[in-house]
Design a protein around this nucleic acid. Structure first.
Lengths: 274, 274
DNA sequence: GCAACTTCAGAACGAATCTTCCAGTATCCA
DNA sequence: TGGATACTGGAAGATTCGTTCTGAAGTTGC
């Protein structure tokens, strides 16, 4: 009988998906770990993989055999071969993507990826560390964080909402439903995190303004243009992201968002431990 | 005396260039070969390298030592460590940050920016152009596009919702409010764009599954792990983004999202103009 | 042209790694 | 509840791999 063994990482991962449900417990743990960390297969030993997956080495061995290989060595050989295969590097790949038909989705992707990388670079070099520190400390000190971002900024606000929820912080996502402003929920000691880009939603600006009057701190994520957010007394974090017509690639913005989230988590953790 | 050994591939390659001129013949042959094929160091044995360079294994050995390593094993370890994308797990990282107090928000930002740039690079080189084309054509052909993404994937779904709204496409953002499934709105000829990452929301999977039964096409944005999305017959776009514990930097994902959005817009525009 | 030194290649050694095997344990079915 | 089957974990065995060593070849300086 011809041996049926995967010859590419993709084939291997597909097979793992197909069979993982019918695998015994230990072997499924291997499957989970290896599927999530397939980039390690090429460079890690059985012992390392086993430790990472929390199983004995022999389980990894049996798993490799269950997938059709003679052993872990063969599985690893396959991954190493795939890694060594002259894969066009990032630059040339971008070029082929762009060349392969001007309007093709792949060419578009190449362009957005390039633009995203530029935006991220800009973000790192233009964010003012003092503003960032101040934003973190204000939000970390807040009783409750109110998230306000509409239209193109809404996904970012939603991202914050998820992060804060996971951290168990009091947070409220405004403006999502029913055109209710929710302004009455803002109390002294709270903070508002307002996100808005050109063209600036009047609702967001008005919300931040009113929240200020109600005794809340305001932190804004906005762009470097003539943002009205910079007029009201708020800590402003400026993200420079080049628009594509009406569409804004949010790569830099979401990166700033997760940074803020984790930094706030860190700051609060530190305070609690004292 | 403190041992002077390179700690990054960059350092190593610089040193190779600096010293290769003053090296004996065999060792220079090693240098030339390794400089040109440094991507093999992590996965090849001494014997393989030696054969590739056309020298005996012991020459490779001496070369590694001439570069300051104790042997080839140490050189290889360094390359392997660099290859394995550092997976900073959020939990322990938070603890060290809190302990040291050294983790300024700016440092965090630099790290997330770096991680984002890597993710974007991966995205460009790993997305399968055929899958992308197919995803675009299916979504472009749909009467209506249903967006399904919960928890950490919700911001992405919301981003699509905004894009489609701006383009004037029939689209519906599901699962946001009131725990209503909205499944009844899915009709034959529609398409579902389902977004889910590990741990995969059962609701999203069930929704996609049921939508399939109702005669809708399914396109999935998911990760390379054991995604259940890959089991149902869907076009799957795989995004490999390293998690930070429970938090997922979405830089690559939102970049894919805007690409899809614009590509669909382009495809529909082209069709209309015919 | 000779001597001292460096470089070289292959073989042998030792360590690390992969693989197999078996006894103990859990699970399932009658 | 009892037996049979499947699964598990660890330790022993086999294999590959990295490293060192030594005699020979080559090179340099006098």
């Amino acid at each position: 009988m011809p041996r049926d063994v995967p010859t590419t990482p993709r084939e291997f991962l597909d097979r793992v998906h197909a069979r993982s449900d019918s695998l015994p417990r230990r072997l499924r743990e291997c499957a989970d770990y290896l599927a999530a960390n397939h980039d390690r297969i090429a460079v890690s030993t059985v012992a390392e993989i086993a430790q990472g997956a929390g199983v004995p080495p022999s389980a990894v061995m049996r798993f490799a055999q269950a997938m059709g290989f003679s052993g872990y060595a063969e599985l690893q050989r396959m991954f190493r071969a795939a890694l060594t295969t002259p894969r066009p590097d990032y630059e040339s790949r971008l070029r082929t993507l762009q060349a392969s038909g001007a309007g093709s989705p792949s060419a578009l992707l190449a362009e957005f990826v390039e633009s995203g990388r530029r935006s991220l670079g800009n973000l790192a070099s233009t964010i003012d560390p003092r503003s960032l520190d101040m934003a973190v400390s204000r939000l970390a000190a807040a009783e409750m964080i109110h998230l306000m971002g509409l239209r193109r900024a809404f996904p970012v606000a939603a991202h914050f909402a998820y992060t804060f929820e996971r951290m168990g912080f009091a947070a409220m996502l405004h403006g999502g439903v029913g055109m209710l402003s929710g302004l009455a929920a803002v109390r002294p000691g709270d903070a508002v995190l307002a996100i808005t880009f050109n063209p600036y939603s009047p609702e967001t600006v008005a919300f931040a303004d009113a929240a200020k009057d109600r005794g809340a701190e305001v932190v804004a994520i906005t762009d470097t243009g003539l943002s009205p957010m910079r007029r009201i007394d708020a800590v402003a974090l400026l993200v420079d992201e080049t628009d594509f017509g009406a569409f804004r690639p949010l790569a830099a913005t979401v990166t700033l968002a997760i940074t803020l989230g984790v930094a706030i988590g860190t700051a609060r953790g530190t305070r609690q431990n004292k």
